[in-house]
Design a protein around this nucleic acid. Structure first.
Length: 196
DNA sequence: TGCAAACCATAAC
DNA sequence: GTTATGGTTTGCA
């Protein structure tokens, strides 16, 4: 049985799907209906689930973490993510993405260069990221530092993406290269992202 | 700038 | 198998 938790904090609804101590999906949205629907889309298959009204300690911690990420805070991600049902390539890309630190962004192309595959394929993985905003797909922008898409495509979600990034700005100035899984991943200061 | 073509994993047929 | 679809990128006018 999969447990689903949801909570409203600071103007957003947050939701998490958990099985035992593992996280299957997370989501956020402006309404309860949307956050639940969005998160159910991210679940692996049609398995029985139950919406819980009381939160386990771990669920409480997880939902709070989601809120803190939205607030641009630096949090530790010591949660166990269940992604074995995702395509292998998607797992790989997400594995690189979690290494991008607060205050930096990477690009679809840079992520592709590190993880393999192509930029558009990376975009596809971002669009179907079941772990937003825990796995920080909001930190992936276009190679020309246009903000890129968010929330499944080009829509209002872009505003949210920009807002999160503004709060994550740590004032770094220099691009840097990170060693991840034996590959090199280029990351860039949030300040590089184009304003409009 | 703007547009066309290349790019590449997935899902749907 | 094959095709259609993207949160992209690059080159060239």
């Amino acid at each position: 049985m999969i447990q689903i938790y949801r909570q409203r904090m600071g103007g957003f609804w947050y939701a998490a799907a958990m099985k035992d101590d593992k996280v299957l999906a997370t989501s956020f949205a402006s309404t309860e209906e949307t956050v639940l629907r969005h998160m159910l889309d991210g679940l692996p298959f049609n398995v029985p689930f139950q919406v819980e009204d009381k939160r386990s300690q771990l669920a409480e911690k997880l939902l709070t973490t989601l809120k803190c990420i939205m607030a641009g805070e630096d949090v530790s991600l010591d949660f166990e993510l269940e992604m074995s049902h995702l395509p292998k390539y998607a797992q790989r890309v997400l594995g690189f993405l979690v290494k991008v630190p607060v205050g930096y962004v990477t690009t679809y192309g840079a992520l592709a260069k590190a993880a393999g595959g192509g930029a558009r394929a990376v975009g596809n993985v971002m669009a179907s990221n079941p772990f937003a905003p825990l796995v920080p797909c909001h930190r992936v922008v276009r190679s020309d530092f246009d903000i890129g898409g968010y929330g499944g495509g080009y829509g209002e979600g872009r505003k949210v993406k920009r807002a999160i990034l503004e709060r994550e700005d740590r004032g770094y100035n220099e691009p840097t290269e990170m060693k991840v899984n034996g590959s090199v991943l280029s990351v860039f200061p949030v300040g590089f992202v184009r304003k409009d």
